[in-house]
Design a protein around this nucleic acid. Structure first.
Length: 648
RNA sequence: GCCGCGGUAGCUCAGCUGGUAGAGCAACGCAUUCGUAAUGCGUGGGUCGGGGGUUCGAGUCCCUCUCGCGGCACCA
């Protein structure tokens, strides 16, 4: 007999090999009915699986949070069956669960389009209504390959070959249709329910490799009930409302046009925001001991060959050729330039750490399909810096960089941070020993980062994602609607200084190659601007708002006073504009609210007479009257950037 | 770069199976001087993304380039 323990701590004896379903039945028929799968010692399995030894068992109903994954997975299988029923000759490949849903990749000469969705969804509903049980079979490797080969499923045969020899080949049937799958599944197709929707069609490479054939992917979403589905669709709409490209139009911040793909045309308001960001970052890093520089935009090919960028990234660089046939490249990175500045003049160990910073404009010829608003551009500005250190200084300086980055994120309203250690990639320069040392050093720094943050910051490892010259820490922040953005980076580089001939003189008069820390805090300032806009849904904090106050008149009789108010506000350093147009106040309030102006001063005859303003804040219909001087004083206090506020 | 979809007035979009362009908002003009999310009337505005082809005739069909959108791949 085996002993089965239930969540309430009770345990009972059963014959070995009894199925979960039979155990559920022995407890109560309704439990057996409602259960769609079970957890055995914390692992989700089919309800029909036999229990062979002592175990902790928990039955899952459809409403269990853990069931959502099964609903989505089963829904993917239903999708695949529906597609093969409607489009014979289509091959199936894989169909995993992803965040908020699932997808299934098919191989078909003619890819699927959203127009196919209605038909497919209809067929899916039929399959779900049929409510056929999911049943598992274990096949021999040879038999499985033969059957899938006979069905013309070449991709499945490849998948079977990739399954490690010690693992079983599991097949799940749902009626006449079956698929290779590691499971688990719910008890029947009917459990999928009707809260699903096919979302989009897209191409995707077989096994994620661009050398492989392109498959046709269908994305779907599935939920426990219609209410959750509706909520999810609402959430997508909300994300669309926050789209920085849309906000840019509403707020008149920037635009793109065909002649400069992937490069921003900043409008006055957008540029104000951008410069406000730079101003803040400049103050923060100057206070932290960085020295700002500016290195050339265009540098000779030879330098890029020396740095290794030419070999590794030639295809992604903008190259120019001049009349005399010299070949130059627009800088894709700032580090070689900064190394030149470091090398200029003999450096002593007393000069280290040397912190060289630049708001460096870089150009990268990104693949056309990668471009995406401000989030992925070909010309951007990095808040870049290179800290030249001795080996002994690596740790302390890295921690300083870390603390600065985290403090800055806090100021921008990001509190949910993950720091990841990205280790050596396949394509790299430098010896294994250098990499061993560099990774070990960063791993230990990561450890300290976690300890210092006291649970406020999570850490993780990102294998193989380091740069070609060194491992890095990646700073990932989570925005207001739960999306993750990798912004900051701290790269430990034992290679580049040596390659570019940088050295310092140590205390024994020896030439020593320094170690270089590459660091960016916000990363691409263009991209960070986009992230900020979406994080705040355009409602930027006052200190960042390009227009902080708009003065709106009610009648022309208030024009003179409005001009006076504007002048007074401007004199106090506020970013103010006026709307003296011949429009009703309703119209003006609407216009400037849509343009996300945080503060409206409304002035009419009454205000002019009393020297007051009527204040309306973005997002609230409330009106507050205040004396002009008081209103301005309060705003001046409020628009102060976080660092200035701390310094007070 | 790859797969799919798209580009019509400043913006959002309509234009069926080919018969030489339309709405709302915006802009401009006039009237209105108004109290917190769209005042009324009027006027102007488009080589339908570029090029080529089919056709008596192309915004509409075909090819191609380009840009954008959704994914994939890439992201020093």
């Amino acid at each position: 007999m085996i002993s089965v323990t239930f969540p309430d701590g009770a345990s009972r004896q059963f014959a070995p090999g009894i199925s979960g379903l039979d155990i559920a039945k022995s407890i109560s028929p309704s439990l057996a009915n409602r259960s769609i799968a079970m957890s055995v010692d914390g692992v989700l399995t089919d309800l029909a699986d036999p229990i062979l030894r002592d175990a902790k068992i928990e039955f899952l109903t459809r409403e269990d949070p853990r069931a959502l994954e099964l609903i989505r997975h089963d829904c993917a299988h239903v999708l695949a069956e529906a597609v093969q029923a409607l489009y014979p000759g289509t091959q199936v490949t894989i169909g995993p669960v992803i965040e908020n849903g699932f997808y299934y990749d098919f191989f078909r000469n003619e890819p699927f389009t959203p127009e196919d969705f209605a038909g497919i969804e209809g067929k899916m509903r039929e399959i779900i209504a049929r409510d056929r049980p999911f049943t598992k079979e274990v096949w021999s490797r040879e038999e499985a390959k033969r059957i899938f080969r006979d069905k013309g499923e070449a991709f499945k045969v490849e998948l079977i070959d990739a399954i490690p020899p010690d693992q079983e080949i599991k097949i799940y049937r749902q009626g006449d249709w079956f698929d290779l799958c590691r499971g688990p599944h719910m008890t029947s197709t009917g459990k999928v329910g009707n809260a699903f929707k096919l979302m989009k069609a897209a191409g995707a490479y077989w096994r994620g490799d661009s050398r492989n054939p392109m498959l046709s992917r269908i994305y779907g979403t599935a939920w426990v009930n219609g209410k959750d589905l509706e909520a999810y669709l609402k959430q997508i709409e909300e994300a669309e409302r926050r789209d920085h490209r849309r906000l840019a139009r509403d707020m008149d911040l920037f635009h793109f046009q065909e002649e400069a793909p992937g490069a921003v045309f900043w409008h006055p308001k957008g540029w104000t925001l951008f410069q406000t960001l730079i101003g803040y970052m400049r103050r923060r890093q100057t206070a932290a001991g960085y020295l700002e520089v500016n290195a050339p935009q265009i540098l000779d090919r030879a330098l890029w060959e020396q740095s290794g960028h030419w070999q590794n990234y030639h295809a992604n660089m903008f190259i120019t050729q001049t009349e005399d046939d010299r070949i130059f490249a627009l800088k894709p990175m700032n580090c070689p330039g900064h190394v030149q500045i470091f090398k200029h003049g003999l450096k002593s160990y007393r000069d280290l750490p040397a912190k060289i910073a630049e708001f460096g404009a870089v150009h990268r010829y990104e693949p056309s399909g990668a471009l995406h608003g401000l989030m992925r551009v070909r010309a951007f500005t990095q808040d870049d810096a290179h800290v030249f250190v001795t080996e002994q200084q690596i740790r302390a300086e890295s921690i300083k960089v870390n603390d600065l980055i985290l403090s800055i994120y806090e100021d921008f309203g990001f509190h949910d941070i993950v720091v990841k250690l990205a280790t050596r990639p396949d394509r790299r320069v430098g010896s294994e020993e250098l990499w061993d040392n560099a990774e070990a050093a960063l791993a230990s720094i990561l450890d300290q980062v976690r300890q210092r943050a006291g649970g406020r910051v999570k850490t993780a490892v990102n294998p193989g994602e380091g740069t070609f010259y060194g491992p890095k820490l990646e700073y990932v922040l989570r925005d207001a609607i739960g999306r993750d953005w990798q912004c900051g980076t701290l790269q430990l580089d034992f290679n580049m200084p040596g390659r570019l001939g940088a050295f310092y003189i140590d205390e024994h008069s020896n030439k020593v190659t320094p170690v270089m820390l590459h660091r960016a805090m916000l990363g691409s300032l263009e991209r960070f601007t986009g992230i900020l806009l979406e994080h705040y849904a355009g409602n930027l904090p006052l200190w960042l708002s390009p227009v902080q106050v708009t003065v709106c008149t009610i009648t022309q009789e208030a024009d003179d006073y409005a001009r006076e108010v504007m002048a007074a506000a401007r004199a106090q350093g506020l970013r103010v504009v006026g709307d003296l147009s011949n429009e009703k106040i309703n119209y003006k309030v609407r216009e400037h609210s849509l343009a996300k102006v945080p503060v409206l001063f409304v002035v009419g005859k009454k205000e002019a007479a009393q020297r007051t303003v009527s204040i309306r804040r973005l997002g609230s219909p409330e009106q507050k009257a205040a004396a002009l001087e008081e209103a301005l004083a309060a705003l001046v206090e409020e628009v102060m950037p976080p660092d200035a506020r701390r310094a007070e």
